[in-house]
């Protein structure tokens, strides 16, 4: 469905150029939940912005259903890490979610139904007329997820969405995400620096190298579904996978550290 081939991104020109991404390729299949994990400082966010059409790649290309991505495609929803800055403080929860629907040619009733369904699926029905800044951080991120869902994307891109909430809220949000994904049947690309989160959520994991970033390996996750915060994380396969990814990232980092600098 989503195909990344030979993607490179370079900032600046000439001698002072930094190569953020180099020759990166992978594929996302229909209905899949793919986690992208890599050491901090590797071009995870840059990669996701290229996928969303927010950044033009320097070389290579991104195709969605065979069509090259040059600007943000209509089939893509995006959830940012900075929820407080991606929700509009002057709009209520309802208005924030309805905002992207205004230019989709929908009837009023249809629009209201989409908004209310999305709010219900993230369990915020009682807060639909509140302003985002009246809600906690975790609730605000749920609003951002609801906004993405109501938009009815075929693919949902998420940029470290749970990185700025506390641990308990984070576990709740992870389970909520798995539930609504099943309900809406949407393809997800989820970027994180947290290996546990990637293994817990993903069906496939793309492990990235330090910059210039490319794909180090792609792992299939065969953990049983539905996942469970306690039981899944007790499985030997879970422990095995996270140890494998952890070693793989560490090894690569130390290799690069010893290089000619």
């Amino acid at each position: 469905m989503l195909e990344v081939s030979g993607l490179s991104k370079t900032y600046g020109e000439g001698a002072r150029a930094t190569h953020a991404i180099a020759e990166l390729s992978f594929t996302v299949h229909e209905g899949e939940f793919v986690c992208v994990v890599g050491p901090s400082g590797c071009g995870k966010t840059t990669l996701l912005r290229c996928l969303a059409g927010l950044l033009p790649p320097s070389a290579g290309r991104v195709t969605l259903r065979g069509r090259p991505v040059s600007g943000p495609p209509e089939e893509v929803g995006f959830v940012f890490q900075e929820y407080s800055r991606s929700l509009m403080p002057w709009l209520s929860v309802r208005e924030n979610i309805a905002l992207p629907l205004r230019h989709k040619r929908l009837g009023r009733a249809e629009r209201d139904r989409l908004v209310e369904e999305a709010v219900e699926s993230v369990a915020l029905t009682g807060f639909i007329d509140h302003y985002p800044w009246e809600l906690s951080g975790g609730m605000q991120q749920r609003v951002a997820i609801a906004r993405a869902l109501a938009y009815q994307p075929e693919i949902l891109l998420m940029d470290e969405p749970f990185a700025s909430v506390d641990a308990q809220t984070r576990a709740d949000l992870e389970d909520l995400l798995l539930r609504v994904r099943a309900a809406y049947g949407v393809t997800v690309v989820f970027v994180t620096h947290d290996i546990d989160e990637a293994v817990y959520l993903g069906q496939r994991i793309v492990v990235l190298t330090p910059p210039p970033t490319s794909v180090q390996e792609v792992l299939d996750v065969t953990l049983p579904e539905p996942r469970d915060q306690v039981e899944t994380k007790e499985l030997p396969e879970f422990a095995h996978l996270r140890a494998h990814i952890f070693r793989s990232i560490k090894r690569r980092q130390s290799l690069q550290g010893q290089g000619p600098g």
Partner: peptide, 18 residues
């Protein structure tokens, strides 16, 4: 205007007068 807000607008196809 916050760059994240502008990116949100771009992703969700909000442009022009809206």
């Amino acid at each position: 205007v916050d760059p994240t807000m502008l990116e949100t607008a771009r992703v969700y196809g909000i442009r022009g007068a809206q």
